[in-house]
Amino acid sequence: MNSRVVELTGISQRFATHWALRDIGLVANKGDCIAILGPNGCGKSTLLKILATLLEPTTGGGTIAGFDIRQNTLKIRNQVEWLGHELGLYKTLTAEENLKFSCVIKGRKPLVKKLREAMAEVGLNAVGGKPIASFSVGMRKRLSLARILLESPEFVLLDEPHANLDREGKTLMNRCIQNWKKGGLTLLLASHDHHEVLPLCDKAMVLNQGRVAYFGDPKNIPSSVIL
């Protein structure tokens, strides 16, 4: 993979008559950890969905991992892991079955040892055989984290990574983010709470009403653009 992982220019997204994003440009190199900050409804999740190729931007374009975001969505998806508000887990399946399903469908053999290791890492090994309908939102989020740990992505998108997690869960999330950074993965963290994500990131982008209000060093964010 090239050192430039994300290169977006002029990205705008319109929903009916409302512009959720206006003329966004973003560059991320391999190993970068970028915080996307801003109040609710400023377009953070929309930007992450475009980066995950779940949304096609109304205007603008660019590349992710060298692939065009409009033409090569399948190739991009193979290298991206996404943790959004909706976790994409099946309530009727057990934690272990959910992980197994994601492995099988991605074409990998679901090795029980690896599944259990991933579940142990997120503190769910004792409840691996239980249907996740009985899990709290925080436990489900941990399970989604275990699913990412089983993959070997190049690019990880985390939308409100600390939401619904208890203190232990937040520590676990931070540890995972630090490990991914050490491993040279490119990370994008969207959050409205800059206290939680800024210490983890090398760069920050602040969005306001769908436009970039600041992009650069997280230490130099002007107080006027951050909540």
Binding site: L54, R77, G84, E86, G88, Y90, K91, I105, K106
Partner: peptide, 17 residues
């Protein structure tokens, strides 16, 4: 219904299936 409820359909699409 189950796929749409918890964002499972988006997840399936992201799996490049």
């Amino acid at each position: 219904q189950a796929e749409a409820e918890e964002g499972c359909l988006d997840r399936l699409i992201l799996y490049s299936v």
